[in-house]
Write a protein that binds this DNA or RNA. Structure first.
Length: 493
RNA sequence: CGGGGUGUAGCACAGUCCGGUUAGUGUGCCUGGUUUGGGACCAGGAGGUCGGGAGUUCGAAUCUCUCCACCCCGACCA
């Protein structure tokens, strides 16, 4: 079994340190020379690429197309939607000049004071404003609708405190921005994309989520309704993993985007926006990994299988190379991504530890003994178990095993979530149970005051008002006033 | 932005309180050899603006001021 990894803090010892260590040791990302901004390293970026490819396919399947809008937003645009500016103003990077010059006092380069911009540019924290300013010109008639655009981009939010993947000043994401003729159609779009996100996170990230709607105070700045998927991390804190907003006519009104309806009337356009970010990588890490390192679900692992040869001399290596080549070929033809690591500058033991740390779902090892007996050693990352099997039909076995691992990782996360979800009826009980971590289902009177009180006293927030599950009415655990259904509480990232 | 901590070789750290030879240790790296079924061993070698700047001093990794970065706990947030 794996030796205790040097320098990887255990989860029980210090969960955030474990997370931090893991991101670095598994070579996913590192802090950069720029405050709050990370360098995503090749292995981490490979995971993002897998996520992107899958999500992009799902967006295309639901009728969306990709486009690209500017990084910079004129300052005046941001202030057109009152709630929006209120929500983002405090965390915007601002471009004020367009030129540098040599310091006449010899101190390198300085900002040229003569190159001040007439109007400052905001580095986008999100693109609703620049996009709706653009859509204004694209939309005249109901025939121009719907517009179903997505963009893959980077955005900047000047956060006070950052953590690799979970919260960085710059992050990568996709943002969908759609325009519709009717409220119902926009609402359906927002709900559809929430489903797309939930499907992606559950099926590919192997992470169960609660779908729901945000309370007013947790709503996106400028939205009428914010839909969310909420996942549970191993330390008992919830992570908002994707959001889809029904924006009503707020942005259409702010940017004066109207169309002529079939009936010949001028109407404001209805909108949605929806996004997921590199934060998902943080969720992936925190949900499944263990004290030995990453555990990646096969569907998102940069490579699903790694093969390590064990040999005493060049002749034996040549024999193993030949034997493994056939297996690699067959695995690839079954659609399995595989890396054969026969590099001579690392020892097998080192490779075992390394790929375990990097979360490769299946590791195969072939040595002299296996050559003799036509066998191969199969090691699972999720259970850390090993078995020796015949090479006959090993490829199909591996393919099936990958499905099983995907399922097992999901099941483990699901069981954990269920185990850590509690139903609570009294506020006194809530205050006790919230200390256990996990989700709490409780009745709430629907007011911001009660929500605020709970947050102040317990640090727990309403993650969402679930769309599915028990809808039985009751009474608020704090005020005793009527409640239409239980809502989902947790402490959150 | 408030409180706390850290910054010395690629990485992890000691040395700082109490200023004084040539700044150490582990690991990693390079060379040679032996090894290879869970992070190998021996021998030799290279590698440092002690986070940046200013100051005190005959002398600063060490004292003072200042700036910067990172981590932890808060407030804010995807």
């Amino acid at each position: 079994m794996a030796k205790e990894l040097k320098e990887l803090t255990s989860r029980s010892e210090n969960y955030s340190q474990w997370y931090q260590d893991l991101v670095i040791k598994a070579d996913l990302a590192e802090n950069s020379a720029v405050r709050g901004c990370m360098v995503i390293k090749p292995y981490g970026y490979a995971i993002w690429e897998k996520m992107q490819r899958q999500l992009d396919d799902m967006f295309k399947e639901t009728g969306h197309v990709n486009a690209y809008f500017p990084l910079f937003i004129p300052k005046s645009f941001l202030s057109k939607e009152a709630a929006h500016v209120e929500g983002f103003a405090k965390e915007c990077a601002v471009v004020t000049h367009y030129r540098l010059k040599n310091d006449p006092n010899g101190g390198g380069v300085i900002v040229d004071p003569d190159a001040k911009l007439e109007e400052e540019l905001i580095v986008r924290p999100t693109s609703e404003t620049i996009i709706w300013n653009t859509y204004k010109n694209w939309i005249q008639s109901y025939r121009d609708l719907p517009i179903l655009c997505n963009q893959w981009a980077n955005v900047v939010r000047w956060e006070m405190r950052t953590r690799l993947f979970l919260r960085t000043a710059e992050f990568l994401w996709q943002e969908g921005h759609t325009a519709h003729a009717t409220s119902g159609e926009a609402e359906a779009e927002a709900r559809q994309m929430l489903e797309v996100y939930a499907t992606f996170v559950e099926e590919f990230m192997a992470l169960p989520v609660h779908k729901g709607v945000k309370s007013a105070s947790e709503r996106f700045a400028g939205a009428v309704d914010t839909y969310t998927i909420e996942a549970m991390m191993q330390d008992g804190k919830a992570l908002q993993s994707g959001t889809s907003h029904f924006l009503g006519q707020n942005f259409a009104k702010a940017f004066d985007v109207t169309f002529t309806s079939k009936e010949g009337k001028q109407e404001h356009v209805w909108a949605t926006s929806w996004g997921v970010s590199t934060r998902l990588i943080g969720a992936l890490i925190m949900a499944h990994s263990d004290d030995n390192g990453l555990v990646l679900p096969p569907k998102l692992a940069p490579y699903q299988v790694v093969i390590v040869p064990i040999y005493r001399n060049d002749e034996q290596l040549a024999q193993i190379n030949e034997k493994v080549a056939g297996i690699v070929k067959n695995l690839k033809s079954l659609g399995v991504s595989v890396k054969y690591d026969n590099s001579d500058n690392k020892k097998p033991g080192w490779k075992f530890a390394e790929y375990e740390l990097k979360g490769v779902p299946v590791r195969l090892a072939m040595g002299g003994r296996d050559l003799e007996s036509n066998t191969i050693e199969v090691a699972r990352r999720d259970t850390l178990t090993k078995e020796t099997r015949s090479c006959d039909d090993i490829e199909q076995y591996i393919k099936d095993l990958l499905d099983e691992i995907q399922q097992n990782i999901y099941q483990k996360a699901f069981d954990f979530r269920e185990k850590t979800t509690q139903v609570v009826d009294s506020y006194a009980d809530f205050k006790v149970k919230i200390e256990d971590g996990g989700f709490i289902l409780a009745h709430w009177d629907g007011t911001a005051e009660t929500e605020e009180l709970i947050k102040d006293e317990t640090k727990a927030t309403i993650r969402c008002i679930p769309l599915e599950g028990d809808k039985t009415p009751g009474v608020c655990m704090v005020t005793g006033k009527p409640s239409t259904q239980r809502v989902l509480f947790a402490r959150a990232y």
